[in-house]
């Protein structure tokens, strides 16, 4: 039976090891946005042994490229993008920099789920295509790096009760597999 948690960033190891695939998490605090282009730049900085634009340890990265905000709004529509495009970058952020959570949609590869198990990180799913609903839980947004990337720039977001489902936990469980096995008619 899935459980419901309210968590605040930064996340500790203790915060994430209690979570199991299928659990619901309402996340509050600061999270950072990055898609493939920004991830590539982060990894390039790591290769050059330079500082990253934010403290990755204990942090959560949201894979999103929002629409432009209307005047007066903190952000436009802001739902998750498909996560596999970040698969080649995420393990190093988890294993070497202590990234504790990722928010996206869709399957991750074995390197990512292995890193989640080994270094204690969670892959959360947000509902794809629910960008207007999810934007309501984002209270502020500020571009902190790579403004030239436009929608793909790194943004610092303040979220309140951001609704998430645990897809991959620290015990190598995968909700996509568990859920599908339950309803597949063979």
């Amino acid at each position: 039976m899935s459980k419901i948690y309210n968590l605040t960033t930064p996340l500790s190891k203790n915060d994430v090891v209690q979570l199991k695939a299928g659990d619901i998490v309402y996340l509050s605090g600061i999270i950072y946005t990055a898609r493939d282009a920004a991830h590539k730049k982060l990894i390039d900085l790591m290769d050059a042994k330079e500082d990253l634009p934010f403290d990755v340890s204990g942090s959560v990265i949201y894979f999103v490229g929002p629409t432009p905000p209307k005047p007066g709004d903190p952000i436009g529509s802001a739902g998750p993008t498909t996560s596999y495009r970040m698969d080649s970058y995420s393990p190093r952020l988890i294993n070497e920099k202590g990234l504790r959570g990722m928010i996206g949609k869709g399957k991750r590869n074995k390197e990512v789920t292995d890193a989640c198990t080994k270094s204690k990180a969670i892959y959360f799913g947000a509902t794809g295509g629910a960008g207007a609903l999810l934007a309501r839980q984002i209270k502020s947004s500020k571009v902190i790096a790579y403004p030239e990337l436009g929608p793909e720039a790194i943004r610092k977001l303040e979220v309140i009760d951001f609704p998430l489902t645990v897809i991959n936990d620290t015990y190598d469980q995968d909700l996509y597999k568990i859920g599908r096995d339950k309803y597949e008619v063979k």
Binding site: V64, G65, P66, T67, K70, D73, G76, S77, A78, G79, T81, T127, G128, G129, A130, G131, A132, L133, A135, R136, P151, P163
Partner: peptide
């Protein structure tokens, strides 16, 4: 959530999805 999202998008005139 998706039905509610459609309702919010329409009433706030906000894109249904960030991938427009």
């Amino acid at each position: 959530q998706l039905i509610k999202n459609a309702d919010i998008a329409s009433s706030e005139e906000k894109p249904l999805c960030q991938d427009t």
